[in-house]
Simulated assay, not measured.
Amino acid sequence: MQVKLLAASAVIALAIGAGVACSDANRDTVATRPGGSEVGGAAVTATAAPGGSQPTSLAAGEMSVAELVKFAQPAIVRIQTNSGVGSGFVVDSGGYIITNAHVVTGPTGRVASTITVTTSDGAQYAARVVGVDARADIALLKIDAGGLKALEFARLKDVEVGQDVVAMGFALDLQGGEGGAFSVTKGIISQKNRVINEGTNAAIFGSVQTDAAINHGNSGGPLLDLTGKVVGVNTALAPDPTTGTAAPGIGFAVGSDIVKAIYEELRAEGRVNRGYLGIQGFEALRPAVARQLGIPADAGGVVVEAVVPGGPVAQAGLQAKDVIVKVGNIEVANEADLAVALIKNQAGQTVTVEFFRNGQRMSAKVTLGSPPTG
């Protein structure tokens, strides 16, 4: 799958993890952060800011922020490597932990020689890496522990733009604090289905934008809805191209649909063997475009901008302006769904791709290739 690189004025995110933006393990670097606070030594002097108010009413199944923190706290972990500190969360009670790939690989791209996980009760464990997927910036760790509190994933189609969310993680690896010493910030879902471009990695589709404050050290921690489910893994900040500094209130998390698919593949296989369609650019079908193409407004799907000559879909007969609505047994309503479909269907596998062309639903057998490297 090929994607368009985003322009400087679009979402070009800066990783907030080890080496790049994780809290420095040596804590001997002084750096200016947004808001004027300084990082270095054991404490940070900060200026108080107005806090957000609690909602006056909660939907069924939702918790107050304080209740949510108590619920999720046992699942939040601190991850220390030889290059920095990041965050993570337990995804299976048997000791499986999700974090960002860049938390455990650092600037070299190689897995850290030592990875120490600290749970909220203060217990420390040596962690092993089950698998890393650099393309989605997700890693799966395993510690020798059982009976842990685990968090569940939300389905992004159930998540609404504007709803409240809470970020939890070890922002700036601040000293002291109650409980697990993590930081808690609150915001909203600013938008869904964003694209993160971390520069060296491929674009990460199906990401969530939030204005909940996330900073260095938050990498790998969860972005939670008020039911306690994970809607994303906090990963990146957007730079303001006019200033070169982080844009205030624009952070990104790898979306839960992508993370869940990656987790399942890493746990089963230790790696992700993505399929490749050979598409040059695609975007979710919008109502006006559906009308132009004579497609039902509720069909969903992604519009293909161009196909790679000789690539898998080109060999199967697909063309530019085709609208893909299903890959294998996975329905495709948007770019995130297509990314999930290519995570779940492996290179070398032959799948049925369903699509609209000239208002008619069609299908073709496609043998998926491997994504190009570099």
Rank of each mutant, 00 (worst) to 15 (best):
D144R: 10
D144E: 15
A145Y: 06
A145K: 08
A145Q: 01
G146V: 10
G147E: 06
G147H: 04
K149T: 11
K149H: 13
K149S: 14
A150G: 09
A150Y: 01
A150Q: 09
L151A: 03
E152I: 04
E152C: 02
F153Q: 09
F153S: 07
F153I: 08
F153R: 07
L156D: 13
K157T: 11
K157Q: 15
D158Y: 11
V159K: 02
E160I: 04
E160F: 13
V161P: 04
V161F: 03
G162Q: 12
G162T: 05
G162R: 10
G162C: 07
Q163A: 04
Q163K: 03
Q163T: 06
D164N: 12
D164K: 10
V165H: 03
V165A: 03
V166C: 06
V166M: 02
V166E: 02
A167I: 03
A167N: 01
M168K: 02
G169R: 07
F170T: 01
F170N: 12
A171V: 03
A171N: 02
L172F: 09
L172D: 05
L172R: 02
L172W: 05
D173K: 00
D173M: 00
L174R: 12
L174N: 09
L174D: 03
Q175F: 13
Q175L: 09
G176C: 11
G176V: 08
G176F: 14
G177V: 06
G177C: 10
G177F: 05
G177E: 08
E178A: 15
E178M: 14
G179E: 06
G179I: 08
G180K: 03
G180C: 05
G180E: 08
G180I: 12
A181N: 15
A181I: 05
A181Q: 15
